[in-house]
Design a protein around this nucleic acid. Sequence first.
DNA 1: CTCCAATCATTTGTGCTCAAATAATTGTGA
DNA 2: TCACAATTATTTGAGCACAAATGATTGGAG
Lengths: 155, 155
Amino acid sequence: MDKSASIERIFQDLRRVVHALELYSKDVNARFGLTAPQLWALWELERGGPASLGALALTLQLHPSTLVGVVDRLEAKGLALRDPDPADARRIRIRLTPKARALLKHAPHPAQGRLVHGLQAMSERQVTELRRAVATLVRVMEAEDLEARFFFSEE
Amino acid sequence: MDKSASIERIFQDLRRVVHALELYSKDVNARFGLTAPQLWALWELERGGPASLGALALTLQLHPSTLVGVVDRLEAKGLALRDPDPADARRIRIRLTPKARALLKHAPHPAQGRLVHGLQAMSERQVTELRRAVATLVRVMEAEDLEARFFFSEE
DNA sequence: CTCCAATCATTTGTGCTCAAATAATTGTGA
DNA sequence: TCACAATTATTTGAGCACAAATGATTGGAG
């Protein structure tokens, strides 16, 4: 297979990866009541403690305005709370409720779904190769992204 | 790096890949007026000729209800038309307008954006490795997906 | 020939995503 | 100190994605 055919295939396959991840998220939601972004947010709050909306958005790599809705839904489910930040009235402090902590004990870790189950069935060598390849992809894509942003910011 | 750390990393990186793809789509839309799904749909219609909504959804791997909105927007832009299917009144035949065909000549091919530009800068050997790795990923993910669907359909 | 189940497109409802505009608050430079 | 710029969260608007329900049409079984 020549290079351009490989590139075409990589894109098709990436679309399928994205698709599978989405289906997985919907599936977890249907079965468990929490979507992947919601689980990621909870898990990150558990790991890093209370955080401002902006800080959490940064670690989750989401746009702040995206995270507002996610936190809204977590709050509606009684899993997260918005406290005012005593030091800065512009900020909020998002923290977990005891209910959330209890739930996280039994929740599928965002990186332990059935997709990861498949990865675990692969040899360590294969997983390492895959990790390297995906890391390369990220590097290339984000580099191009930055470059383009810089380029167009000059216009 | 041990296996579970590799798996964790793979997932983080995949999230970043998805993120970069989304940003790219939004970017093309802002600059060109068409989102990635719209471009994919146009390109597929150009390649395969007029198609029913269900058939197009299948080749694009989208849920039919998702595609309805995409086609609505293409129609609103004067790029696609819904014709009745003479053979079956339930079906529609989606086809391109001349405007769409003219536009496609200058449009960024869905798989020729700046992300692909980055891939093209890589060596053929690297690209081949990446293709294999991503294909492995797809195989693993979709196999797990099928397995889970089968498992839960037995409940 | 007539029901009735299957098929096809669509609508509705929920959620995620971004960007741009808005409002409140902070901190700083004159 | 005080006006003004920066920061922070939110709202608004557009689009994508799925599932489930709906309505129209087809085609087959009795």
